[in-house]
């Protein structure tokens, strides 16, 4: 199971890298989204994919799942949710202000000499 997951993660990272290297702002943002998905999946896989009872008080079982990776992922998902939302708003604003979503045209300064 872990091996399958690792291949999936690899695909996600490859897709993310491809998208992030493109020029369109929207694609870059989708790329960062894929990248964080890959990272979260990696976190889950790295904790070990086990079958077991939820680690709660009062549950009697032979085997428990490790709650730490799940807690970490929840935190990381919330954070990447916030960051992605902010990134989208920012991209929208800069599209309005600069009039392009091409990252190539978003360079240079106003006063140069």
């Amino acid at each position: 199971m872990e091996v399958v997951m690792i291949i999936v993660i690899g695909c996600l990272f490859a897709g993310a890298t491809y998208l992030m290297l493109s020029k369109s702002l929207l694609r870059i943002i989708i790329g960062t989204g894929l990248l964080s998905h890959g990272a979260h999946l990696l976190l889950l896989t790295m904790g070990g994919l086990k079958k077991g009872a939820p680690p709660l008080l009062g549950v009697q079982a032979e085997q428990y799942v490790d709650p730490v990776p799940q807690a970490l992922i929840l935190t990381a998902i919330v954070i990447s949710f916030g960051v992605t939302a902010f990134l989208l708003v920012l991209a929208y604003r800069s599209y309005q202000e600069i009039g392009t979503d091409n990252i190539e045209q978003m360079r240079g300064k106003e006063d140069h000499d």
């Binding site: 916030g82 939302a85 902010f86 989208l88 708003v89 929208y92 309005q96």
Partner: peptide
């Protein structure tokens, strides 16, 4: 609050 603030910021214009 956060979700709606973001949606409103984009939607307002």
């Amino acid at each position: 609050g956060v979700t709606m603030t973001i949606i409103e910021t984009i939607g307002e214009e």
